[in-house]
């Protein structure tokens, strides 16, 4: 069943001279994690803004075609309905902290206050998310004094507590160090296991290779390619078009060039190891 549907969608930001999205048609299914990659200015963030309805509810500009969320046109959704339907996690850890709460616990509960959830339920749901994301050590801290990585985890918790079925996550780790990045991806992994529908924009293709069910490649406002991670992220020609592929995939290509055994091009470390070990054994 298609859950989010784009039909010949084009969009131009106000005062912009080029189309940020140009005739995009795609169906997103329920319960899958979509990895969205591509060079900067390819249309990735615009897609996120559109699916969440920030376009056209917040950004004006020219929108053509149809964006359907659960069968209903984005223009017909009220903005506040979308905020209960679709969660959004942003790139910048600093802008997502409300700045009005004194503790992380209160910060996480803020969305529930806005939804009118009663106090007892609010406390239980916040506790649940805190435990789930292992934020116990942070709950008494002032959110305005946290590090970038901690803030990003709190931002995830603040959205997850609202329990959306669809999550749009736009480059969540671009400003984080490797250990915070790993923590954020642990969260994304847990959300995937909960069968949430996730649109994830991420430059780190190693992580997309690990977690995505489908990969969309954006180029100049269009979906240039899409398919399974194994099909897309093994393609060497993407490199020439300015899109990274995992280093193990490049390794696979180089091994093939040297006539070394490779059944298929690996895209994750474990696949690469498996292939190498198997290749070695075949001929022992």
């Amino acid at each position: 069943m298609s859950y989010i549907e784009l039909k010949q969608v084009s969009y131009q930001y106000p005062l912009a001279s080029e189309w940020a999205l140009n005739d995009v048609t795609y169906s997103f299914e329920k319960g899958k994690l979509y990895g969205i990659i591509g060079a900067n200015r390819g249309g990735k963030t615009t897609l996120c803004n559109l699916v969440r309805g920030f376009i056209p509810h917040f950004y004006q500009g020219e929108l053509m075609g149809q964006v359907l969320i659960e069968g209903k046109d984005i223009r017909e959704w009220e903005n506040h309905q979308l905020s209960t339907e679709i969660g959004y996690i942003f790139q910048n850890p600093f802008s997502q902290i409300s700045g009005v709460k004194e503790t992380v616990f209160e910060e996480i509960a803020l969305g529930l206050e806005n939804l009118g959830v009663d106090k007892d339920e609010m406390i239980e749901r916040t506790i649940q998310v805190v435990k789930w994301l292992k934020l116990e050590d942070l709950i008494k801290k002032n959110p305005n004094n946290l590090s970038g990585g901690q803030r990003q985890r709190v931002a995830f918790a603040s959205i997850i507590v609202m329990n959306h079925d669809i999550l749009v996550i736009d480059e969540p780790t671009s400003q984080l160090d490797p250990s915070s990045t790993a923590e954020v991806f642990e969260i994304i992994h847990m959300l995937k296991e909960q069968k949430k529908t996730i649109l994830l924009v991420e430059h780190k293709v190693e992580l997309i290779a690990e977690y995505a069910d489908e990969v969309l490649v954006f180029e100049k406002g269009q979906i240039a390619s899409y398919g399974s991670p194994a099909d897309i992220l093994s393609r060497k020609d993407l490199m020439e078009r300015g899109i990274s592929i995992p280093s193990v995939a490049l390794l696979g290509h180089e091994m093939r060039e040297k006539n070394m055994a490779m059944d298929s091009i690996p895209i994750t470390k474990s696949q690469a190891l498996e292939q190498i070990l198997k290749g070695g054994k075949n001929d022992d």
Partner: peptide, 21 residues
Amino acid sequence: EKAIAMDARAFSMPIKNTHLC
């Protein structure tokens, strides 16, 4: 940026909000 981020936290709900404190 903050306005959009707060909108994602359902700030525009037209209902009466509750309070944790």
